[in-house]
């Protein structure tokens, strides 16, 4: 029992000594200089970042700043935009594949969304052509 009590006493004394470290403080002026140093560091970090990185940072800040419902709505809108874009592109490629052998009489040149082909003014071929998005053309045909 005595040795246990002695051990406990030693344990308490160690704890008491450690508690005294709560009185320790940093050197004078540390906290005042700390904030200035942090500002200097943040300025340097900003200077070293690319414009794109800063822009993306602002977008992220704005995105996380809106509520959850709005985030879900925006995500849905982005998804819908991508799907519509893919729909037009795929529809255009399909139409070109199916109707590429038709005669010259009345050709409708189909341009997928994002296609680089543009009709040139005065071009014979282009006078008989109408520029219609492929997806809308096939959609209208069905009705």
């Amino acid at each position: 029992m005595k040795s246990e009590e002695a051990e406990e006493q030693k344990y308490d004394q160690v704890e008491k000594l450690l508690h005294l470290k709560r009185y320790e403080q940093p050197p004078e002026g540390f906290y005042e200089r700390f904030l200035d140093d942090l500002h200097d560091r943040q300025r340097v970090e900003i200077m070293q970042r690319s414009a794109w990185s800063l822009f993306w940072d602002r977008v992220e800040t704005w995105f996380w700043g809106v509520g959850t419902r709005k985030r879900v709505y925006l995500a849905g809108l982005a998804y819908a935009t991508v799907m519509i874009g893919l729909f037009f592109r795929v529809g255009g490629e399909d139409y070109q594949a199916n109707n590429g052998s038709q005669g010259e009489q009345s050709t409708t040149v189909v341009y997928g969304v994002g296609s680089s082909k543009v009709p040139v003014l005065g071009d014979e071929k282009s006078s008989n052509e109408s520029i219609v998005p492929a997806g809308i053309k096939s959609f209208l045909r069905e009705f």
């Binding site: 009185y23 320790e24 403080q25 940093p26």
Partner: peptide
């Protein structure tokens, strides 16, 4: 070493 608050002198543990 850090500075020490002189209140430590009144602490019974010290």
């Amino acid at each position: 070493l850090d500075d020490v608050d002189m209140a430590i002198e009144r602490d019974p543990d010290f």
